[in-house]
Design a binder for these strands. Structure first.
Lengths: 91, 91
DNA sequence: CATGCTTACGGATCACGTAACCATG
DNA sequence: CATGGTTACGTGATCCGTAAGCATG
């Protein structure tokens, strides 16, 4: 499991559509599809239902979504927090 | 920034020694050294002091350590939580 | 037959391990 | 000169993008 996979998963979950998620992420659909599938295989569960209209969350995917977003948010704030701390002054 | 880099960072921080960290992670020292350096460059700060005895945490590294451990722990529990949830029954 | 996810395939990028190198006490 | 981190270098794996394939309404 990688942060990239979590980012891709969140984008697809929020867009409900791999094409739009790919645009949002500036990648093409195949890598997206592959990473989602790899994540599902690693976890051993189906995260989405593939319909003719797009991809919709299944229960396990819905359970994963908020936690994935939390982790990504934590990672981002960690990076920013360190980067914007050139010296330990809190004046 | 990748989860691998955070794992490498935590191992070196806790061991205070790249050689032992490498054994613990089942990799060799050079990849470890490179990933730590890449992380430092990405963040724009020095995380460790390189001494003749090993690597010791600098203030920015000490600030990063607990947050990195938290994220890794969250990721692990997320994966386990989904994996051990074959059906959404909470009987 | 139009839309949307998936598989095939070739090429670039990244990460590792061995070996050689450099610094410190 | 022994210990420990770093750089060099070649190889193997991973990931992407284009193109072709397949399913559904």
């Amino acid at each position: 499991m990688s942060l990239t996979q979590l980012r891709y998963f969140v984008a697809v979950a929020e867009e409900g559509h791999a094409g739009r998620a790919a645009l949002r992420l500036h990648v093409s659909q195949p890598p997206l599809s592959r990473q989602i599938r790899a994540l599902e295989e690693e976890l051993g569960v189906a995260l989405f239902d593939r319909t003719a209209k797009g991809m919709s969350l299944r229960p396990d995917g819905a359970a994963l979504l908020p936690r994935a977003k939390q982790i990504l948010s934590d990672v981002a704030s960690l990076a920013d927090g360190i980067r914007t701390r050139p010296a330990p002054n809190r004046s």
